[in-house]
Design a protein around this nucleic acid. Structure first.
Lengths: 237, 237
DNA sequence: GTCAAAAATTGACGACGTGTCAATAATTCC
DNA sequence: GGAATTATTGACACGTCGTCAATTTTTGAC
């Protein structure tokens, strides 16, 4: 047989993909609590036992979805980091990728939030945990690489004792926090925050300005650049 | 009767306080999923029905705890905002308050995260929801007030069309995101982020520097100032 | 002090969820 | 064709939520 997978194995994979597909939909529609193995089984027209053959608990499904999300974002970051231009422009491109990710795969972002909050972690296999760590780590590495390029070119200086990763941690926190608040608060407008996504962009760029990262945002229109990146790099998505 | 509350009413209040106390402990020990009305009832040596007299579901308990947390932080922010000094120093004082809050009431912060992620919101009474919004709003107002003071004194300028609230949104996101990541990730150290709390401080100050807010962090040691605020204002806590 | 009305408390119950596993059905391969 | 292997099933034990009729306790009028 020249095939690497038997028919059985392919069917199994397809079914697993269907479970994840359904899981993602359910998760974004009814949340973590609404996601039930019983309902997945009913919807798929398989018995519960069969579903448990694939994922030994709810949380495994969720972490598998989170891993898909992280992989997707990693890929988008890798693409964004190749943007031609000075390091600071590439940072803006990554910012655009982060924005695009949340906008285009809202369920993916929702899964990330869930994994960070509910006590899902303990119930999952170390294999998937390691995969998640690895994605996170590589993602961080891409961004800190751009910071290192900026440092090498003398475009910015870090305070004594601070690493590129510390700077990235700030950007990461800012992004994660902003989108978490954004998706879980319906009263931002009432509090004078009419365009939180724009506010997030500004905050990011002001932060980089604060590190003295050239060219500063007075010299270059990063808002326009980010729109351009979203149009040119991620237009097909 | 000179008393405003009857014995019955006082007993009721005390029991309610005990429920919340127990709820807070359980929540931080076993998480949202581990918190069960059955267990609360057993632990309190009352029947389930009695507990339901106080809170008509799990989520109400959690939101009540969240409200306590928000009230506590509001109080700390109010205190911090009275710090004598220029607006930017008062911002640093508020940053110190935020830090102190998370460190000193970790369960409180954990509750906030839970409310923002799990689908708790829909199941709760509008009364508690409004209280939460009100706390949030007042908290924001304190901080944006300091920004307005800074603007009035000419210490910073905002980009065209941006409100003080947009700036505060950035700081809020940064803080919330950082502490969320911090408490839900055990691999930060492996990724070169050895002191995330310090990284958060830096990020905040760089962001304010980016807005050109005087005095800049090169001119004034905000790290020392924050430590001082924590020692002098929040020493007793 | 007595006792009926009101209020508080109880816990069995139905509905639903998880994860298991002996029984059953389908598939493989000799 | 049929024994061995593998896949699938769904009843089951257990746990949780929120309800509500039944029971106990408290109240206050006499």
């Amino acid at each position: 047989m020249p095939r690497t997978l038997t028919r059985k194995q392919r069917e199994r994979q397809e079914r697993e993909a269907r479970i994840l597909e359904l899981g993602r939909t359910m998760l974004s529609e009814v949340g973590y609590l609404g996601l039930s193995m019983d309902r997945i089984a009913a919807e798929m027209e398989y018995s519960k036992g069969t579903i448990y053959q694939h994922f030994c608990n709810k949380e495994e499904i969720i972490l598998a979805l989170a891993n898909e999300a992280l992989e997707k974002r990693l890929q988008m970051f890798e693409q964004a980091a190749t943007w031609p231009g000075r390091p600071r422009e590439r940072m803006a491109a990554i910012g655009a990728a982060a924005e695009e990710f949340v906008e285009h795969y809202p369920q993916h972002f929702a899964v990330e939030q869930i994994v960070r909050s509910a006590s899902i972690w303990e119930k999952t296999s170390s294999q998937r945990q390691e995969f998640m760590h690895s994605c996170e780590s590589r993602c961080l590495h891409i961004v800190s690489g751009v910071v290192r390029d900026g440092l090498a070119q003398g475009d910015l200086k870090l305070p004594a004792g601070r690493t590129p990763e510390d700077l990235v941690f700030g950007l990461w926190s800012l992004n994660f926090g902003a989108y978490t608040i954004l998706t879980s608060s319906d009263s931002l407008g009432d509090n004078g925050i009419s365009d939180p996504v724009l506010a997030l962009r500004q905050s990011q760029h002001r932060m980089l300005d604060g590190y003295g990262w050239q060219p500063l945002s007075q010299e270059l229109d990063y808002m326009a650049l980010m729109d351009q990146v979203k149009n040119e790099v991620f237009r097909d998505a």
